[in-house]
């Protein structure tokens, strides 16, 4: 226990790095995933295929392999980043975007067909239909899965610890080496820091989900 208290600054560093990694990747994945999601529901076949191919390939690839690509393979292909934080963000974003894309797509598809048909029937234009009818309804459905993706992303960011980023899991390895006698409390506390993010986010997702269920 004393070890944990002594090493609290290191824990804090790890925690903030995990948060930075997660939030940055979440923002990029959200943008990238929404673009890919709009590809998947667009009337243009080639864009739809591109979106589908991206999702199928990335979803069936382990995150560790994506990290291997950006950390070990990319330097062979001419991309040599200065540190390990940037490739970690890129790997997490590229991976998470596929799941955001799927959430966005199923959110849009969850809006009843009659809604859009009715709005077109009363003469709303495509942008109006999208802005006034479809997206506000899709948005509600998309939020709970997006929170779940964010939770998964938080846990997934631990993979970066295996690729030289000193986030929470990286700190766990460092501390386990430094204090072999106290590994159990040291690791339990790392777990607590993860739970500080994941459990409230999970409760939030459940709450929003119930709210949405009422609204429909």
């Amino acid at each position: 226990m004393d070890t944990v208290i002594d090493e609290l600054p290191l824990y804090w560093d790890g925690f903030t790095t995990t948060l930075a990694l997660t939030l940055l990747s979440a923002a990029i994945a959200l943008v990238l995933g929404t673009i890919l999601g709009s590809f998947r529901v667009s009337p243009v076949p080639t864009l739809r295929w591109f979106g589908t191919a991206y999702v199928e390939i990335v979803r069936n690839t382990p995150l560790t392999l994506v990290f291997i690509f950006f950390v070990f393979v990319a330097p062979q292909l001419g991309w040599t980043p200065s540190g390990f934080f940037a490739p970690a963000v890129v790997a997490l974003s590229v991976y998470t975007a596929a799941f955001v894309c799927e959430a966005v797509r199923s959110g849009i598809n969850s809006v009843g067909l009659g809604q859009a048909e009715a709005s077109r029937a009363i003469g709303l234009t495509f942008p109006q239909t999208l802005r006034l009818i479809v997206l506000p309804q899709a948005f509600r459905t998309v939020i709970p899965p997006l929170i779940n993706i964010f939770i998964a992303l938080t846990k997934n960011s631990s993979v970066a610890g295996g690729f030289f980023v000193a986030e929470l899991f990286g700190v766990a390895r460092q501390l386990a080496n430094a204090h072999p006698a106290d590994v159990i409390p040291v690791l339990v506390f790392i777990g607590v820091f993860y739970l500080i993010i994941t459990i409230p986010a999970g409760l939030l997702a459940g709450y929003v989900e119930r709210k949405v269920a009422f609204a429909r």
């Binding site: 709970p144 899965p145 998964a152 999970g202 997702a205 119930r210």
Partner: peptide, 14 residues
């Protein structure tokens, strides 16, 4: 919905 199975299928698949 309503089972508070937070993060069940959707999140778990990631």
């Amino acid at each position: 919905p309503g089972t508070t199975a937070t993060g069940m299928a959707g999140g778990a698949d990631v």
